[in-house]
Design a protein around this nucleic acid. Structure first.
Length: 644
RNA sequence: AGGGCAUUGGUGUAAUCGGUAGCACGACAGAUUCUGAUUCUGUUAGUCGGGGUUCGAGUCCCUGAUGCCCUGCCA
């Protein structure tokens, strides 16, 4: 049997391809956008409105679009849908570009590693506002064809005439006015001669359509406000439905991918492009068609909708995020408890883990809520591989090794230190990353006075507690085995203030002691972390937890009305987790790590954010609030913990 | 109420023409372990309901239920 020759350009194996991939597969096979089989013609885009910050939901959209373009060898475009000067600002443009860069996508014309504010930073970025003149020309064309008209009624009148879900609308009295009149009025709208809200340009479609979007939708409204990019060149601005398809068409986008709520808008998307193409001749398949005064037909992309990503225990509503920020419920747009891209970044999430998370579910049309655990798991698995380890005691309690100065009968440790010196320091070797041998080892100082974690000691521990307690022996990781010989308490607070212990010199480095005379090896169940009192670096640690205590914070409880009695209306704020942030001011970090280098901001990670694992605690990153005098660490996510 | 879309273990997601319901996360159990981590092994549990067509239905037909979206001069 003859082997089928391997075609290098063949599509990837048809396993688990989501519905959008399958749609594009068909387009490519049928040659809808170019020569049949030519995958490189695929063009996608991410079209944010610059009126807020990017969040995890946008991350899904941007990666979905970018991933599709990459997969097919096509192009990906970053375009700002800046069609409404009332809500948009340059600040948002800049933050979105910065976030998109950090997420790791590359758009057509992008210059990598460009500094914010430089021309290179904006290289390749498209703006809908650049197409305003083209859109205006198309609008004039539609008016000329009798497919659009200027309506001089106010918003209320238009709303009333639109009808309801069950009743048809009624036509505007201006619906059949002569094109010349509309053209004249449209130009005056554009030139700023008309007051806001006084008139609009409407498409003439079907006032009885069961799809309300088709009941003569507004194309242009008057907004006498400067635009962040076009200044006061324009006094009319296009509505989404009129603008979006044209933007896609002008950029040659083949597959315009958006979220489910635009499903009912797709007929309009198609209608506008078809309306422009009406009278523009046959399709370009005929080659020499298009012999009309308006020119050849314009490109008609395919809109496809997928379900927005939503995550349990958080919210992505722009309005509510803004409320949390403005009411100081969080520290800002980049608060690590927020699902914003900047919040995830500040919290220590890696771009790789965000991409893995958002891509894991593929694309579907089912509005699902993903477990936050999946997001946490994504970052854990990346950081487990990549983050160097170190020891940090979050809530320290002093531990004194009472026999530290007793001469032990053991071979020299090579340090030259005398074992009867109570002030001696022994430097222990510690593995930087057990998952990555190339990360090497570091030296950690061990001395008579240490600090251990308060929760690692119990006065009266249960049997299954593997840590410190009176008479119990544990391993101090990379240090020695110690046995608790006693403890002291503050008589007033009852708080443990000191733990006394003895160490076994035979267990240096944390190794098992040699077998006894009968050949039995002494064992220990627990290993705990520690720092040397005189060497430890004090720092602040911020322990972030989920912002809300319920999976669906926006959903009112069944008894919402009853609850509302006490303090007014029920609000999603009632679901805030009061313990979403715990600050440990007095945490103690081992002095050196990472090959013996003092902890300071550096560029070990591509994005310059320092990320480590505090052993037995979780993954942490150095916060921007850090100074050389005071390090501030944010907890990205805790380690899994099967003990409670 | 009119229109549109959707529904597969606890969660998310696969299943070519109608042909063994698979994967991941979680949970649970065990093994390994100088992190109660990691890793490994095993167990758990599912086609929204009711009819129908068929040798055979997650898939096709009928019907019902539930959820989401649409009555901005927002996107």
């Amino acid at each position: 049997m003859a082997e089928t020759p391997q075609n290098v350009d063949a599509p990837p194996p048809a396993e688990h391809r989501h519905f959008i991939q399958k749609i594009i597969d068909e387009h490519v096979a049928a040659g809808r956008w170019g020569a049949p089989g030519d995958r490189s013609v695929v063009r996608t885009r991410f079209p944010p409105e610059p009126n807020g910050y990017l969040h995890i939901g946008h991350a899904k959209s941007i990666h979905l679009n970018h991933g599709l373009a990459q997969e097919f060898g096509g192009a990906f475009v970053l375009r700002f849908d800046d069609t409404n000067p009332v809500k948009e600002e340059q600040e948002y443009v800049d933050s979105i570009i910065a976030d998109a860069r950090w997420l790791g996508v590359r758009w057509e014309g992008m210059v990598e590693n460009a500094e914010p504010g430089t021309p290179d930073f904006y290289a390749g970025v498209r703006f809908a506002s650049d197409y305003f003149p083209a859109m205006y020309a198309f609008a004039i064309e539609l008016v000329g064809k009798g497919l659009a008209y200027v309506d001089e009624q106010d918003a209320d009148a238009i709303r009333t005439q639109r009808g309801t879900l069950t009743e048809p609308g009624t036509p505007s009295p201006f619906r059949d006015r002569p094109a010349e009149e509309s053209l004249d009025l449209l130009e005056r709208m554009k030139n700023g001669e008309i007051a806001d809200g006084a008139m609009v340009l409407r498409a003439k479609i079907d006032m009885a359509s069961p799809n309300l979007n088709l009941r003569d939708p507004v194309m242009y409204r008057v907004v006498n406000k400067p635009h962040h990019r076009t200044g006061d060149d324009w006094h009319i601005y296009p509505m989404y439905d009129w603008a979006h398809g044209l933007e896609d068409s002008i950029e040659g986008i083949t597959n315009s991918i958006c979220t489910l709520e635009f499903e009912a808008h797709r007929p309009l998307y198609d209608w506008f492009i078809d309306a422009i193409n009406r009278g523009r001749g046959e399709t370009n398949a005929r080659g020499s068609g298009g012999g009309s005064s308006h020119g050849p037909p314009i490109h008609h992309p395919q809109q496809t909708e997928f379900a927005r990503l939503s995550v349990d225990y958080t919210i992505t509503s722009k309005r509510k995020l803004l409320q949390l920020v403005e009411e100081r419920r969080v520290r800002g747009w980049d608060d690590p408890r927020l699902p914003t891209v900047s919040g995830l970044r500040r919290g220590g999430y890696t771009p790789e883990s965000i991409r893995a998370f958002v891509m894991e579910g593929g694309a579907t049309k089912f509005n699902a809520a993903v477990d936050v655990g999946k997001l946490e798991n994504a970052v854990r698995s990346h950081l487990n591989q990549a983050a160097p380890r170190c020891m940090c005691v979050l809530d320290p309690v002093r531990l004194v090794i009472e026999n530290w100065n007793e001469t032990a009968d053991r071979p020299g440790d090579g340090t030259g230190n005398s074992t009867d010196d109570p002030d001696r320091v022994e430097w222990m070797d510690a593995v930087n990353n057990p998952e990555d041998a190339s990360a090497g080892t570091r030296r950690v100082p061990f001395s008579r006075e240490l600090y251990v974690e308060r929760v690692d000691f119990m006065e009266d521990p249960p049997k299954k507690f593997f840590r410190l307690g009176p008479g119990r022996e544990v391993r101090l990781r990379y240090g020695f085995w110690v046995t608790c010989t006693g403890y002291e308490k503050d008589p007033e607070t009852g708080e443990v203030t000191l733990i006394r212990a003895t160490y076994d010199p035979e267990t240096r480095g944390g190794d098992n002691p040699p077998p006894d005379a009968d050949g039995k090896v002494r064992k220990v169940k627990g290993t705990i972390h520690w720092v040397s009192a005189e060497h430890a670096v004090p720092c602040e640690v911020r322990l972030f937890d989920r912002l809300f205590r319920v999976p669906k914070p926006e959903k009112p409880p069944k008894d919402a009305e009853a609850q509302a009695d006490a303090d007014g209306e029920w609000s999603f704020l009632d679901n805030l987790n009061p313990d979403s942030l715990t600050i440990r001011e007095g945490a103690l970090l081992e002095p050196e790590w990472h090959g013996g280098r003092q902890v300071l901001p550096s560029a070990h990670w591509p994005d310059g954010i320092e990320r480590v694992q505090f052993e037995r605690h979780g993954y942490f990153c150095l916060d921007a609030d850090s100074t050389p005098e005071k390090l501030v660490w944010n907890r990205t996510v805790g380690l899994r913990d099967s003990w409670k």
